[in-house]
Amino acid sequence: MKVIAVNGSPRKNWNTATLLQKALDGAASVGAQTEITHLYDLKYRGCISCFSCKRKGGALGRCAMQDDLTNVLDKISSCDLLLLGTPIYFSNITGMMLSFLERLLFSTMTYNLGDRSTFQGKLSSAFIYTMNVPSDLMEKLGYKALFNHYKSLLERLGGPSEILVSNDTYQFDDYSKYEASMFNEKHKAQVRAKQFPIDCQKAFEMGARLVESNIKALLNN
C-alpha cells in the first residue's frame, strides 16, 4: 500500500506539514509505504491549455508537460492513497496547490459524453486544511462549499475523499515580533496547546483508517 502526501504550504515544519506527517505516520503504523512532497521545493507551472491530454493518439489522460511535477504525477498515478494539505490563503488553497491540482485533475477530465474521468484506477484521498480562522467564523464565511468543491474534484479519481480541518492555528512562534494586534497571543497559545494535538491525533487516525479501508477493499475484490 503506497501513500503519497503533498504539502501545499511553504512551511515544511509548521501546521500543515505536521498534520500531513501525522497522517503518514498513521498510514505507516498499519504497514503502508509513505512519501511526502513539498510543492514549494519544485519548479512547475499550472495547466497551459495545450490539450495534449485530450488529443487523439496522444498522451490521453496524462499531462504532457515536463518539469519538476512530472515525476510526482507519475508516482501518484500508481499510489493507493493521496493526502493533500494546504493552508487557506485569501479564502482559498495556496497558488502552488491550485496549480498542482490543475495538472493532476484536468488531464484526467474528459470532454466525452457520459464520462467524468479517464483516470485508470481507484485512488482514495484526503484533504487537510489549516487556517487562522476559528471554526465558528469558518461556518459563517462558507468555507464548507470550498472544501466540498475540492472533495468532488478528487472523487473523480475513482475513490472516496475525506476532509480534515484545523482551525485557529498558531501562525508565529513569537507573536511579539509581528504587527498582529488583532490576535490574542494567549488564546492562540491555548489553542496550540490543547486543540492542535487533538487535530494531530485525528490526522494519525485518518491515515491509518484510510489505509485499512483500502486493504479491506482489495481483499474483498
Score class of each variant (00 low, 15 high):
87 P>S: 06
25 D>Q: 08
194 K>F: 11
16 T>L: 04
9 S>H: 09
94 T>F: 01
15 N>C: 00
142 G>Y: 09
17 A>P: 11
6 V>D: 13
29 S>G: 12
163 I>Y: 05
23 A>G: 10
172 F>H: 14
152 S>G: 11
121 G>Y: 10
79 C>V: 03
50 C>H: 09
69 L>A: 02
169 T>K: 01
138 M>R: 15
41 D>M: 00
197 P>S: 11
197 P>T: 02
208 A>Y: 01
205 E>W: 08
88 I>G: 04
153 L>Q: 09
183 F>M: 14
15 N>K: 00
103 R>Q: 04
188 K>G: 10
102 E>R: 08
29 S>I: 13
215 I>N: 05
91 S>P: 00
85 G>W: 03
5 A>K: 09
24 L>I: 15
75 K>N: 15
213 S>P: 05
193 A>R: 03
213 S>G: 07
14 W>I: 10
76 I>M: 12
177 K>W: 06
33 Q>V: 10
108 T>Q: 05
207 G>D: 10
88 I>R: 06
174 D>C: 03
97 M>A: 10
188 K>Q: 08
122 K>N: 15
219 L>P: 02
94 T>N: 00
219 L>H: 11
183 F>Q: 14
72 V>H: 13
181 S>Q: 15
138 M>N: 13
65 M>V: 04
64 A>N: 02
68 D>P: 10
93 I>N: 05
121 G>I: 01
221 N>W: 01
167 N>R: 14
71 N>Q: 06
70 T>R: 13
32 A>I: 11
158 G>C: 10
195 Q>C: 15
203 A>M: 06
99 S>I: 08
157 L>A: 08
87 P>L: 05
62 R>F: 11
190 Q>E: 07
79 C>R: 11
19 L>P: 00
151 K>G: 07
28 A>D: 03
221 N>S: 01
83 L>E: 02
216 K>N: 11
27 A>S: 09
12 K>F: 07
146 L>T: 07
183 F>V: 15
11 R>P: 02
195 Q>H: 15
24 L>R: 02
76 I>P: 12
208 A>F: 08
199 D>A: 09
19 L>M: 02
64 A>H: 07
39 L>T: 03
26 G>I: 03
98 L>D: 14
129 Y>S: 15
72 V>Y: 10
196 F>G: 00
169 T>I: 12
179 E>L: 14
128 I>P: 04
88 I>C: 02
112 N>D: 13
138 M>V: 14
89 Y>Q: 05
124 S>I: 07
9 S>Q: 10
24 L>D: 09
